[in-house]
C-alpha cells in the first residue's frame, strides 16, 4: 500500500465505482422525479412541480385493495416461511440426518428454476385438481419461493452459535421448550427478523407467479402491470413506487438497527 505506484490504483477504481453507482441509480431516480411533474407524459422538458399524482394515489380504491392484498399475502408468507425455515434449519443443524445433502438440495430447487416454469407447473396442477385460483394459490406459490431463503438465512445463524449454550441450559434444568425460548430464540432472533423482512419483500414484489396464479383479486405488482398499459395511470404508479421506496428505506434502517444489536450480542454468546 505504501509504495508509490499503487497510489494511482485507488483513484481508477474509485472513478469506476462512482460511474457504476450512476449507472444503477440514474434510471431509478427518474421514477420519483416524474412523480412530481405536472404532465401525464413522461418526457423532458419538465413541467411544473405538482403533488396531484400523490393525491390521485391516495384516492385510488383499486390501488389500495391491491396494496392490502399484497400485504396480507406477504405477511402470511413471511410468517409461515420463517416458521418452516426455522424448523428445517434446526433439523439440519442439530440432528445428524441421513440423506441431509439431497434433502436440502431438493428444498433449494426453487432457487435454480426459472420462475415461469414453477408458475405454469403449479397452474397445471391446480387446474387439474380443480382448485379455484385465489390469493391462497398465490400465497402458496410464494411460500415455495421463500422457504429456501428463510432456511439459508436461519441455517447460517444456527451454525454460528455455540451448541454448548443449549446444552448448558438443559443441564441447568430447563426443559427443551424453555431452552429454545430463553437461549436459542434470542440468539437466532436477528436471523428470524432478516428472514421475515426478506421473504415479505420477495412476496410483495413477486409478479410472475402471481400473474399466473391469481384470479380477480390482484396483488400490487399485478395492479402495476395492468396500469402500465394506460399512460394516464402511470404518474400515480410512479408516486406509489416513490412512496414504497421511502417506506422500505425506513424498514431497512430498522432492520439494520436490529442487526447491529444482534452483532453486539455476539461476543457474549461466544463466551
Amino acid at each position: 500500500m505504501k509504495n508509490s505506484p499503487s497510489f494511482f490504483k485507488p483513484d481508477g477504481l474509485l472513478v469506476y465505482a462512482v460511474l457504476y453507482l450512476t449507472f444503477i441509480y440514474l434510471p431509478v431516480l427518474f421514477l420519483p422525479l416524474f412523480s412530481f411533474n405536472d404532465s401525464t407524459y413522461i418526457t423532458f422538458p419538465l413541467k411544473d412541480f405538482t403533488l396531484k399524482w400523490y393525491d390521485k394515489m391516495i384516492n385510488s380504491p383499486d390501488m389500495h385493495e391491491a396494496l392490502f392484498n399484497s400485504i396480507k399475502v406477504g405477511l402470511t408468507v413471511a410468517i409461515l416461511s420463517t416458521i418452516l425455515g426455522l424448523l428445517a434449519a434446526k433439523a439440519v443443524t442439530r440432528y445428524r440426518l441421513r440423506g441431509r445433502g439431497p434433502l436440502v438440495s431438493f428444498i433449494m430447487i426453487p432457487l435454480v428454476i426459472p420462475e415461469i416454469i414453477l408458475a405454469i407447473s403449479l397452474l397445471i396442477l391446480i387446474s387439474q385438481a380443480e382448485i379455484p385460483l385465489s390469493l391462497w394459490t398465490v400465497g402458496f406459490s410464494h411460500l415455495l419461493l421463500c422457504i429456501p431463503f428463510s432456511m439459508l438465512i436461519l441455517i447460517s445463524r444456527m451454525e454460528g452459535f455455540d451448541r454448548s449454550l443449549e446444552e448448558a441450559a438443559m443441564d441447568l434444568g430447563e426443559n427443551a421448550w424453555m431452552t429454545f425460548w430463553r437461549v436459542t430464540f434470542p440468539i437466532v432472533l436477528p436471523g428470524i427478523v432478516a428472514s421475515l423482512l426478506l421473504t415479505f419483500t420477495i412476496s410483495f414484489d413477486e409478479f410472475v407467479l402471481a400473474f399466473f396464479l391469481s384470479s380477480t383479486d390482484p396483488t400490487l405488482p399485478i395492479y402495476i402491470w395492468s396500469s402500465l398499459r394506460f399512460p394516464t395511470k402511470i404518474p400515480a404508479i410512479l408516486a406509489l413506487g416513490a412512496s414504497i421506496f421511502i417506506i422500505s428505506f425506513f424498514v431497512v434502517s430498522f432492520s439494520e438497527w436490529v442487526r447491529r444489536r444482534g452483532v453486539k450480542l455476539e461476543p457474549t454468546s461466544r463466551i
Binding site: 431509478v28 421514477l31 413522461i42 414484489d205 409478479f207 402495476i224 410512479l238
Partner: peptide, 15 residues
C-alpha cells in the same frame, strides 16, 4: 436502487 419494484425498475428503462 433495488428496493423499487422490479416492474418499475424495468419500466424505468422504457422511460
Amino acid at each position: 436502487p433495488f428496493w423499487t419494484s422490479y416492474l418499475l425498475r424495468v419500466f424505468a428503462w422504457k422511460i
